[in-house]
Design a protein around this nucleic acid. Structure first.
Lengths: 248, 248
DNA sequence: CGGGGGGTTGATCTCCTTCAATCAACGTGG
DNA sequence: CCACGTTGATTGAAGGAGATCAACCCCCCG
């Protein structure tokens, strides 16, 4: 299986696929070497919990491949996704030892982990790590705030369009393709997961996706394979300014 | 006027009211001295814009006194508050020079400002500042994510109860009072501002506050003066676990 | 073949929005 | 001092967007 192979292949930081985007992005060769000594890889199957909210966390780490979600759940079962973890995203908070959220693997994922204590020690001695972590945290804060506008003020249709446009944009940057012409990607989430992200029910998600398809804003092949013929149109539907307005 | 007096009085960092909570909290005496050289105070009147979204930002700073809001606005006028800035909270993002949000003074406020470039230079040389900023940013990220649950999954009544409980808690910690017994505070926000925070209309806010009053969950004197007879009851109404579950 | 997970679609209901009238408090100028 | 406008807030009536409940489809897998 590919994920198992990657466990073997990516022992060396120098050819790590997330090297230039992860928490270690700013590290010099010697710093990287010290990180390499305390790191270990770990694989999680699709659907499994990486972390349970409230549990003690003895490690932090980066998503190397695959997709995970950060979710919050109320006692009566209502759940809200509060983050989508893609390759290079960081999991865990130095300085806190209890997890605040559930982290669930959406696909099979590989994580590059560090035991929390050694990592915290390194952070003190290695400003490059703390600097990069600050930068990433500020980006996440911006993303969270952008999402607050989606959750608080957008209609169901706009919410769906916003989610699609975010996934499309991320996909485009990951694969180094521009946002000109048509964009094609696979939805990494079930309808239910999308609903949890958007603060909707899965039925509403399904209906709105159908509506966007009917109106020609998106094209669907099967349930998951999406084509965006006109990115500008999608962003209009999302209620975003079609050109500027992008923070990242 | 009190605010003007404070401009004169708080020239000295050593008796600054937010000294132990702001971005400078971890600084040693010598570091503080260097900060003192590049800082300046600035006063904004209630209702005025501290920063316009999209504008060039040439400074960062801390709220010393008063309350400000962080808001995002769509082209058609829908607005969502994405943060509430209380004394000691930090404004601005090192590394970015365009403001992503509107910052508006809700009351008269005093800010302790630093020109961005000198502050960024200091950050590189002073890990204590970067450390503290990371800590504060992580806290804000947690707050933003807690709020995503409120926006995405809670009912109007729960939203109001959540907002009241957050303000009550903050007020209690600021004034070093416990959350036992009854809690009394003044709402720092208009009904409209609350609506922008909660993703509701101001009419719904008004109705739900009336309902909570009718049900004895809160008591009102005038429009703004609130008494919480039973904090546990309020937190139940907010959909939160009445005891644990608090991150901060 | 049966069963289950993921998805779509329909009918109905309800919570919140929208539109609108009214009120209290406050300041202002004639 | 009072009519007037303004601002913030409350309350009512009507309408609609999305939730809820439910049936059904498709596809894969044991």
């Amino acid at each position: 299986m590919l994920n198992e192979r990657s466990l073997a292949v990516h022992q060396d930081c120098s050819d790590c696929p997330i090297r230039h985007r992860a928490v270690c992005a700013r590290c010099e060769t010697d710093e990287l070497q010290r990180l390499e000594e305390i790191k270990y890889y770990r694989r999680y199957e699709a659907g499994s919990h990486v972390i349970w909210s409230g549990d003690r966390m003895d490690f932090v780490g980066s998503v190397v491949s695959g997709i995970a979600t950060l979710t919050q759940t109320m006692e009566d079962g209502r759940t809200q996704m509060v983050g989508l973890l893609l390759p290079s995203d960081f999991v865990g908070r130095p300085g806190r030892d209890t997890a605040a959220y559930d982290v669930v693997a959406t696909t099979d994922i590989v994580m590059c982990c560090f035991r929390k204590k050694p990592f915290e020690d390194m952070m003190v001695r290695t400003p490059h790590i703390a600097q990069r972590l600050l930068e990433m945290t500020l980006d996440e804060l911006d993303a969270a705030r952008e999402w607050m506008l989606v959750l608080g003020r957008k209609t169901a249709r706009e919410k769906i369009a916003s989610l699609l446009s975010i996934i499309a944009r991320r996909d485009a940057t990951l694969n180094m393709r521009g946002t000109e012409g048509q964009i094609v990607f696979d939805l990494p989430l079930t309808r239910e997961a999308m609903a949890d992200y958007l603060g909707l029910t899965l039925e509403t998600v399904s209906r709105q996706i159908s509506a966007l398809r009917k109106d020609g804003v998106i094209e669907l092949e099967g349930k998951r394979h999406v084509t965006i013929p006109d990115m500008g149109r999608l962003m209009e539907e999302a209620g975003d300014d079609a050109d500027g307005g992008l923070l990242i």
